[in-house]
Design a protein around this nucleic acid. Structure first.
Lengths: 224, 224
DNA sequence: ACAACGCTTCGGCTATCATCGAAGCATGAA
DNA sequence: TTCATGCTTCGATGATAGCCGAAGCGTTGT
């Protein structure tokens, strides 16, 4: 059963660490979960057998990543259920407020700023959202081309939707996923508006001062 | 952790039994999971504490149901991951082929016929589907009003989308969820085209002979 | 009032599985 | 070749948690 794989705390920590979309080595994951490499090896084998993660050999390292954005989606859904039961992640620490503000959800922006961005885009009619479904409008395409140099053909992907509503576990509202969400996040990084936290395994996204201003100019509360 | 709750086989069986959307008593769930009432009571308490199920007292019975369609969604997602890993449900039996053909996924039609229905609706432009997102077209509204006496205002719901793509674990393709999926299934039942299997806890949907013909007339392969 | 029924709580048994030490097997470096 | 590093396999230990029998509590029915 897949759920029992996610159920174990050590494995859950590993998967959470992989939610930032990066591939991590076996030993990094071991440290992340607070267990010895031997134990980690066993867990990783099971997760791989369950199809949740994929290995990639590179020299004498083995990098693991989540097999699929779908896996990340289910994981996020699970986290959502856990959040509403009050079982907030025990993993408390100083980075918690930062996590709430801006973090990576697999490959796109989540947290307060992620929710705020989608809110603003919806208010400015850059996207249309009917309940769970999101669609990019022509105004939205113009906006993206003008302000973020993103053209529609950059968003095409054989098996992934352009827009997707992703439930945010801290805000309990939607943020933007899909190829658009991923591309926008990538652009923010390129523009040096924001950068993923340096500490390995962290999902925190730190905005620079100018980045914060630019982001607010595009998606600030004024548009709400 | 929520995932560990779903991870236990006994609890997983209980939850699977509740996926048909009906509420079941504690003893029914115990029998469904193949355990004694004492053990079941413990499990049900944990599931309730985890916010996955909700009790409802009624005389000397306690009925349990899934708290939310969201829970069903996450469960279905988990089943999808399990399916693609080849970990098909061990729960084999004579009802398996019937399950593959037509079953209830929380409150809407799933299985071969469910997938076929969405395929046909897409081909006839009753809905537009962009990757994961489904939208009802005006032709679709006309079709529903004419053939199934379903008007758009019957589909409005504060917190649930009209259309939603739900990944089918047996077909590994999408079928139609959301209020439309639920309403259509309800109409099929009212029209006596189909009925849920009588055996308690079964997700199988049995089509009558005339129901099968009527269904095929609307959503048959001819439209594909 | 009494009995039957549905469910829960308690206590003890058992098995599964996570965990780690030690050893083995690769790959890369000296 | 020789050593170091990263990871895996093996074996043994220990703790968590599922499980059931017995008993208790509340509700329904006679």
């Amino acid at each position: 059963m897949v759920a029992s794989l996610v159920g174990d705390p050590a494995r859950a920590n590993m998967l959470t660490a992989l939610m930032n979309g990066r591939a991590l080595t076996a030993s990094e994951l071991a440290q992340e979960a607070g267990i010895t490499p031997q134990t980690a090896s066993s867990h990783l084998g099971k997760l791989e057998a369950g199809g949740l993660i994929e290995p990639e050999k590179q020299g004498r390292h083995r990098y693991y990543r989540l097999t699929d954005p779908d896996v990340a989606g289910v994981l996020e859904g699970l986290a959502g259920l856990a959040a509403r039961a009050g079982h907030m992640r025990v993993r408390t620490g100083p980075k918690d407020p930062a996590l709430r503000r801006a973090r990576i959800c697999y490959d796109h922006l989540a947290g307060d700023l992620g929710v705020q961005m989608l809110d603003s885009m919806r208010a400015r009619r850059l996207v249309r959202q009917k309940k769970q479904d999101i669609e990019l409008t022509t105004e939205g395409e113009r906006f993206l081309a003008k302000h973020l140099q993103i053209s529609p053909d950059m968003l095409a992907h054989p098996r992934r939707p352009v827009c997707k509503a992703c439930l945010d576990w801290s805000e309990r509202r939607h943020h933007l996923a899909g190829t658009l969400g991923a591309t926008m996040m990538a652009r923010f990084t390129e523009l040096k508006w924001a950068a993923r936290d340096a500490t390995p395994g962290s999902r925190v996204v730190n905005f620079t001062r100018t980045g914060e201003k630019s982001f607010a100019a595009l998606f600030g509360n004024g548009g709400d």
